[in-house]
Design a protein around this nucleic acid. Sequence first.
DNA 1: AGATTATGTCAGTGTTGTTGACTTAATTTT
DNA 2: AAAATTAAGTCAACAACACTGACATAATCT
Lengths: 167, 167
Amino acid sequence: MKPYTPDGHIETALTEKHAKELDIIELFFFAYRDFTADPDKILEMLNFGRAHHRVLYFVNRKPGMTVAELLEVLKITKQSLARVLKQLIDTGHIVQIQGPRDRRQRELYPTHQGRELALELAAPQSRRIANALEQLDPSSRAVIENFLKAMVDPAQWQQIDSLPKSG
Amino acid sequence: MKPYTPDGHIETALTEKHAKELDIIELFFFAYRDFTADPDKILEMLNFGRAHHRVLYFVNRKPGMTVAELLEVLKITKQSLARVLKQLIDTGHIVQIQGPRDRRQRELYPTHQGRELALELAAPQSRRIANALEQLDPSSRAVIENFLKAMVDPAQWQQIDSLPKSG
DNA sequence: AGATTATGTCAGTGTTGTTGACTTAATTTT
DNA sequence: AAAATTAAGTCAACAACACTGACATAATCT
């Protein structure tokens, strides 16, 4: 079955025979690649990167988030966050306010400018998703949401559930 | 409606009112974050990174791929690819063979060792997907595949379609 | 009072991406 | 056959974003 390869290389493709769910593995890669490319174009003009986007997104989704909470969500170190956060503060997209209960904490809030940018970055991603959903049965939305949530470690579900629903 | 904030910061969360599909935007982020974390642990032990994984994956999925094809799929520059590819060749995971039709081209093939590693890296991702699917109706698979493909730029569909189905 | 916690900061490092310029060998065009 | 183009490789410099380790400060908890 396997072709003759004197130097030991393999000419047969890796397929579902060898490993399950390859189609979804690569669809996930391609979908995420193009999904992130849209905001990346906007960010580039502002000299921001994907890291800025993630911070700005979650601060907008949950204003008042502390630095520690943000680190938990992004799964990065505080030194990594520091640079990006400092730039977002210096450019007037995010402000820090001393925690009222615990004054060691820094609550993070978007400014109007930060909210505007978050909306601008979300727009092409919303459009891409809405467009994909339009081509499917209306019941598909629930299936996709359930699938994506099931792809997340259950220990992390609380991070998803702590974000506001549709207020 | 908006709370009084003397310094102009925003305390109201960004919700579906302001932008559509936020739930799927963030589910996609969380799902991809955890999806890539599994192989990252294995790669770390070998002093490889996510870039090595991507190269190894596609060379296994389509043995004989040329360098130019790989660049198209990964959307990176040849200088970026060069370092990672060199390491995979030096460690005996991939071999290059001069193209038979066009001898300028270098066809990329996995070695047995490269195939083994690709399988090892795919395993936890397959498991995660299979586990997520198990919790859903059997018809969900098609919905998810259609959705993910619709999330990809149509101009790129040929990249997906050129990969072997289930040989 | 002492320990712990939340955050910030300094210094060094590694991976992965970028641009630009140049080389080599092979193919295609004129 | 000569000239232009193409596929791939390489050198150098650089930037974004992640890491570790160590230390500082202020506030809270024990």
